[in-house]
Design a protein around this nucleic acid. Structure first.
Length: 123
DNA sequence: CATCTGACGACCG
DNA sequence: GCGGTCGCCAGAT
């Protein structure tokens, strides 16, 4: 195993309905080898660990993985409310940045306050 | 031990 | 916006 634990940890931290690009992920975790390493990390994602691997997409929000994972990812993202356009995700509204976790937290709080109801958590 | 293969991204035409 | 090339690295055969 490599230092991919930090990668998985960060992926787990991605808010529902948001996505992170391989490049950003690699950068955020200081992964050597860049985006490719992030991709490998995802490919090697241990199943049953509750890791939302589907929230990790390509540079332009494009879904790069192939079947059968592709359809599954689409399905999961769609169920989370992510803006899906064919095989892409609208980063404009769904891109999440680890650096702005603080801000995202605030946004999350707002969303929660808006509903005032316990939002059913998936995954 | 040598080689191949990929869940990538930046660049170029 | 799309497709081809190159660099990069780890795991599989």
């Amino acid at each position: 195993m490599g230092g991919w634990d930090s990668v998985y940890a960060l992926v787990k931290k991605i808010p529902r309905g948001k996505v992170l690009t391989y490049g950003a992920l690699a950068k955020a975790t200081s992964l050597p080898g860049g985006a490719r390493a992030a991709g490998r990390a995802m490919a090697a994602t241990p199943k049953g660990q509750g890791i939302p691997w589907h929230r990790v997409v390509g540079a332009a929000g494009k879904l790069l993985i192939r079947e059968p994972y592709a359809s599954l990812q689409k399905k999961l993202l769609a169920s989370e409310g992510a803006k899906l356009i064919e095989s892409r995700v609208d980063l404009k509204s769904c891109h999440w940045i680890a650096s702005s976790a603080r801000r995202a937290q605030a946004a999350s709080r707002v969303a929660r306050a808006r509903k005032r109801k316990p939002l059913r958590r998936r995954c």
